[in-house]
Design a binder for these strands. Structure first.
Length: 638
DNA sequence: ATAGGGTTAG
């Protein structure tokens, strides 16, 4: 085959290749450079490997069968198509093009750094000799790399029909093609294939299957596989930890991290990223600080992934000083770092700072992306910077060519809604290019609660029901709107709707982080080991609060809340009592809530803080996973 | 000796 001319003819010469002496095909030479090249490639020092290759040519030595795989791999890793094509010329000149390892390296190189079509060409022109497992494997993983689902499976079928034997590397190439939820049944079949071929004992294939399940959201299957694996290596642990983390199962992550520490496997930066993101999700700053110490002592402190994860963790947990200090010391601030710190200031009510930082980011030449706009838009809506937010929203598409997604719309609807500009918000939704999702109409519904607009609320609710009929939060919201409007009929209507759809309100829960553990309380919970003491403490507090004049703002509201949830004592009160029992006087007690704190508890906490002279901070955990869907199942976590 | 592969942040 000829090397694609379009690539070679480009003037850029990344490798300054001289013509080389042609040696006999596949002559086994003891090229002294090869050992060094292998070393470089194995250590992922790809630039060095290519430099070394250049030096080798300059010194007059010729590349051979053992040289090409390393340098081709380096080109693939660095995505250098022109150098890759030049190497292809060298392969032909040195007569190595029929060498098995060189063929599969070439296929892989083309698939990874120029075009999978060229990879296919090499494969086809190899003729009979490509009827080998290696070449099939290389091309299949090439299709996977380029997300070519149908081509990948078609080739696999061809491979089976041609009677070419399948090995574990075939599966490593094929399984990651099934990472979309709609393809996961096929992944399950592949799992069956692995068992049939006796490949499941290899931990790399199992890791690959594990990752596939995780990405499809089939956490149960992933866990089953994980538990069945007797030789869990670092990647096994990491796959499961990040799998939980990506599916919003934060407490399971912390549990698993704990178990990993007890095993012999040492965590690496990938592990810490998953653990930190779960601390962020839970608002578990103390746990996160522990992890931070471990990161420092493991020598990973300059890893950019970890720095960003740390900034995010501290910022979301409210420790803005610490987050800022890491951010300021960062050598290279990426758009991710900026987004994390902007989001942190935004969610803790420092909208002005968030906006300043966003502008500063743009001044330093960093191009904001969609996530950066989410953080600045939500900062604007929390701080009431309505016009500023609208400017950013306009700039997003006009100046940066970024098509807003439902997330951005829900921020802007919230922005307009909080400012009382309800009709504009409604019109914005109706003008959307993309289909609005539940949170977009939900934001309007929330705004209707603030501004007591029953009519618009009914309209927004109708829309939300089309999109997300099982989300209890919206029913509660509408019910409260009716309740405030003293529309008893409406309240009953919502309740009947919920009964008909067999929906029950998720229990409100609160948690307090204590001694590196998350202590979770559901409304009316009596499962905590200290339940007796907690309830005693709470009764005392309630009596004191009554003496100070604390009561429900309005009796109807209390009844409504109780009917909606069927609950007893509110979870935040339990959490407060637990905190008072276990923490030292003078320390702050941080309570995290999954649902908005109710008016009664708000007052309760205010009065308790006067009585006991302690500082309470109640933070809204819904902010932590505002844009994630998964529910937090912390229940089993002690 | 040599390919092919699995885990990371907002």
């Amino acid at each position: 085959m000829t090397v694609p001319q379009s690539l070679v003819s480009r003037t850029t010469k990344l490798l300054n290749l001289r013509s080389t002496k042609t040696t006999g095909a596949s002559t086994v030479t003891t090229n002294p450079w090869n050992a060094h090249l292998r070393e470089m490639a194995n250590q992922r020092q790809f630039v060095h490997a290519l430099t070394l290759y250049r030096q080798m040519l300059r010194s007059g030595d010729s590349p051979d069968v053992f040289t090409f795989p390393f340098v081709l791999k380096s080109c693939a890793a660095l995505s250098l198509p022109i150098s890759g094509a030049q190497l292809h010329c060298h392969v032909i000149k040195t007569g190595c093009k029929h060498e098995p390892f060189v063929q599969s390296s070439l296929i892989s190189m083309y698939a990874r750094c120029s075009s999978v079509q060229y990879a296919r060409k090499v494969f086809d022109e190899n003729g009979e000799s490509s009827n080998r497992t290696d070449c099939y494997n290389a091309l299949i993983s090439g299709y996977t790399f380029n997300s070519r689902f149908h081509d990948g499976f078609a080739l696999f079928r061809k491979m089976r029909e041609a009677g070419v034997s399948v090995n574990s590397v075939t599966m490593l190439g094929l399984v990651p093609l099934c990472t979309l939820p709609e393809h996961w049944c096929l992944g399950l079949c592949l799992h069956g294939c692995c068992v049939k071929f006796g490949l499941d004992t290899q931990s790399s294939v199992a890791n690959c299957l594990l990752t596939m399940y995780v990405k499809c959201g089939a956490i149960d299957y992933a866990l089953e596989l994980f538990n069945a694996m007797s030789n869990k290596d670092l990647i096994t642990w990491n796959a499961m930890i990040s799998g939980y983390a990506q599916n919003g199962l934060a407490t399971q992550v912390l549990d698993l991290y704990h178990k990993m520490k007890l095993s012999d496997v040492h965590p690496d930066p990938v592990t810490f990223v998953g653990v930190l993101s779960s601390c962020t999700y839970l608002g578990a700053q103390k746990f996160g600080t522990e992890v931070d110490r471990r990161i420092q002592s493991s020598g990973f402190s300059s890893n950019p992934f970890l720095c960003n994860a740390l900034i995010n963790m501290y910022a979301r947990c409210g420790n803005l000083e610490k987050a800022r200090s890491i951010f300021d010391h960062l050598r290279e601030k990426s758009v991710v770092s900026w987004t994390a710190i902007i989001g942190g200031y935004g969610m803790h009510g420092h909208g002005e700072i968030a906006v300043q930082l966003f502008d500063e980011m743009v001044r330093t030449g960093i191009r904001p992306d969609k996530a950066a706009f989410v953080s600045v838009l939500s900062a604007c809506s929390h701080a009431g910077l309505t016009d500023k937010g609208l400017d950013y929203f306009a700039a997003m598409e006009m100046n940066y060519g970024l098509q807003p997604e439902p997330m951005h719309y829900s921020c802007v609807v919230d922005l307009l809604g909080r400012a009382g500009r309800l009709m504009e918000a409604k019109e914005l939704i109706e003008s959307m290019q993309v289909k609005p999702d539940g949170p977009v109409w939900g934001a309007l519904l929330g705004a209707c609660k603030i501004h007591k607009n029953v009519q618009l609320a009914e309209l927004a609710f109708e829309q939300v029901m089309e999109l997300d009929p099982t989300n209890i939060g919206y029913y509660v919201l509408l019910s409260n709107i009716y309740c405030e409007a003293e529309n008893l009929e409406g309240v009953l209507k919502v309740r009947a709707m919920m009964r008909k759809r067999k929906l029950k309100k998720d229990p409100g829960y609160s948690y307090v982080e204590y001694e590196g553990r998350v202590h979770l309380f559901l409304a009316g919970d009596r499962t905590h080991p200290q339940t007796e003491e907690i309830y005693r403490m709470m009764d005392d507090l309630e009596n004191l609060v009554k003496e100070l004049g604390g009561f429900y703002k309005n009796d109807r509201e209390r009844r409504n809340e109780e009917l909606m949830s069927g609950m007893g004592v509110h979870s935040e009160k339990l959490a407060i009592a637990f905190g008072l029992l276990n923490t030292r006087p003078g320390t702050e007690i941080v309570v995290i809530k999954n649902l908005r704190i109710c008016e009664n508890c708000h007052q309760f906490i205010k009065l308790v803080s006067k009585i006991v002279d302690r500082q309470f901070v109640v933070r809204d955990a819904t902010r932590f996973h505002h844009f994630k869907n998964g529910t937090c199942s912390c229940k089993d976590y002690w």
